[in-house]
C-alpha cells in the first residue's frame, strides 16, 4: 500500500495524570509539504509532535511517521530531522560536540556535515560555546542545525522561530523554503507566529484545546476566509445596503459610527464598489481593502470553537 502521508495522526488522544490534553487531533502531512501546525499557547502543538515521534508512550490513536507506527519510531529509516522544544542541547557539551554526538548516534556519514549546518543557521561563531552559554534563540538555531545533519527527508520543528531575532526568523524561513523547494524536503513547523507561517507554509493545521479545528492548504483557507474591505463614511446605513447588493461582496458588518467591514470574494470589483459608494454620495472618507490572512482564519476558527464550546 502506498502511504499518502509522511506524518499522520488520526484520533490522537493523550492524558497526563488522568487529565485529557489531546482529545482528538487529526492531521496529515503529505510529501513535500511545508506544513504549519498552528495553535495558541497550550493548544497541544508540542504534545502532538511528541506523540507523533513516539515520545509519549500513553498516546492513543493512529500515529505514523514515514509509514512507521510512532511507537516504533526507531525503525524509521534514516531521514528524520527533529528540533523540539526545549531545544535539547546538552549543557555540558559545546554546540559542535552536541552536533558531533548527534552525527555519531545517527550514524551519519554523508549529506550535510557539522560545519555546513552551523553555517546554514548562522551559528558558526558559537560552535565552541557550551549549551548553557547560548541564548534562547541560539539554542533554537543549534537544534535546527542538528536536525539538518545528513540528508533528512522529513524535518519536524517545534517553535523554531521562538526567541529568534528578525534576522534569524528570516534566515530560518528562507532555509525552510529552500529545503522544501529545492530538495523536496517535507518540513513541519509548529508555531504561533502566524504571519511568518503564512509566508512560507503551503498547508496548515490548526489545533486548539487538544483538537484539530481545521486543516488545509493555505491558499484555500485564505480564499475561504475572503479578502476584506474597510469603509469609513458618513452615511453608514446607506453604504452598508449598497455593499450588500454589490457583486463579490460576501458579508457586510455595519460596526456603527460610520465604520463598515465587508468580506469579499475573489471576483469582487473594488473599483466599481468605490464608484458606486461615491456616486450615491455616502460620504466615504476612507476605503481600505484588507488581504485575508491566517490571523483571520485562526481567529475565526478559534471564535467559532469557543462559541460551540459555550453552547
Amino acid at each position: 500500500m502506498v502511504e499518502t502521508f509522511v506524518l499522520e495522526a488520526r484520533g490522537l488522544e493523550v492524558a497526563f495524570g488522568g487529565v485529557p490534553i489531546l482529545k482528538g487531533v487529526d492531521l496529515g502531512v503529505e510529501p513535500g509539504d511545508l506544513y504549519g501546525l498552528l495553535g495558541r499557547n497550550g493548544a497541544g502543538k508540542t504534545t502532538t509532535l511528541r506523540c507523533l515521534l513516539g515520545l509519549l508512550p500513553g498516546a492513543r490513536g493512529k500515529l505514523r511517521v514515514l509509514g512507521t507506527p510512532a511507537k516504533s519510531i526507531h525503525e524509521v529509516p534514516h531521514g528524520l530531522g527533529v528540533a523540539l522544544d526545549p531545544p535539547g542541547m546538552d549543557d555540558s557539551l559545546t554546540v559542535r560536540q552536541n552536533l558531533e554526538l548527534a552525527r555519531i548516534r545517527g550514524g551519519i556519514s554523508g549529506g550535510r556535515g557539522v560545519d555546513e549546518v552551523l553555517d546554514l543557521v548562522g551559528l558558526t561563531h558559537r560552535a565552541g560555546n557550551r549549551g548553557d552559554r547560548l541564548s534562547h534563540g541560539q539554542s533554537r538555531r543549534a537544534a535546527v542545525a542538528r536536525a539538518l545533519l545528513g540528508s533528512p527527508k522529513l524535518l519536524v520543528m517545534d517553535e523554531p522561530l521562538s526567541g529568534l531575532d528578525p534576522e534569524g526568523v528570516e534566515t530560518l524561513l528562507d532555509l525552510f523554503r529552500q529545503l522544501s523547494r529545492d530538495e523536496g524536503v517535507t518540513v513541519v513547523v509548529s508555531s504561533h507566529h502566524l504571519r511568518e507561517v503564512e509566508e512560507v507554509c503551503t498547508r496548515v493545521g490548526l489545533v486548539d484545546a487538544g483538537r484539530t479545528l481545521l486543516e488545509g492548504s493555505v491558499r484555500e483557507l485564505l480564499e475561504e476566509a475572503g479578502d476584506g474591505l474597510r469603509v469609513q463614511c458618513h452615511k453608514d446605513e446607506a453604504a452598508a445596503a449598497l455593499l450588500a447588493q454589490a457583486r463579490g461582496v460576501r458579508k457586510v458588518d455595519n460596526l456603527g459610527e460610520g465604520l463598515i467591514r465587508a468580506k469579499l470574494d475573489a471576483d469582487a470589483d473594488l473599483e466599481g464598489i468605490l464608484a458606486n459608494l461615491v456616486g450615491q454620495d455616502c460620504g466615504v472618507s476612507s476605503f481600505t481593502p484588507e488581504r485575508a490572512s491566517l490571523v483571520d482564519v485562526f481567529h475565526n476558527a478559534v471564535r467559532k470553537a469557543d462559541r460551540e464550546a459555550q453552547e
Binding site: H74, E75, L80, P86, M89, D90, D91, A102, G106, G107
Partner: peptide, 20 residues
Amino acid sequence: RETGTGSVRDPLVRGISRDA
C-alpha cells in the same frame, strides 16, 4: 537531566530504540 533539557529525544529519533 537529559529529559529536562530535551537532549534525550534526539537519539530516539535517530534509529535508536529506548531499550538500546
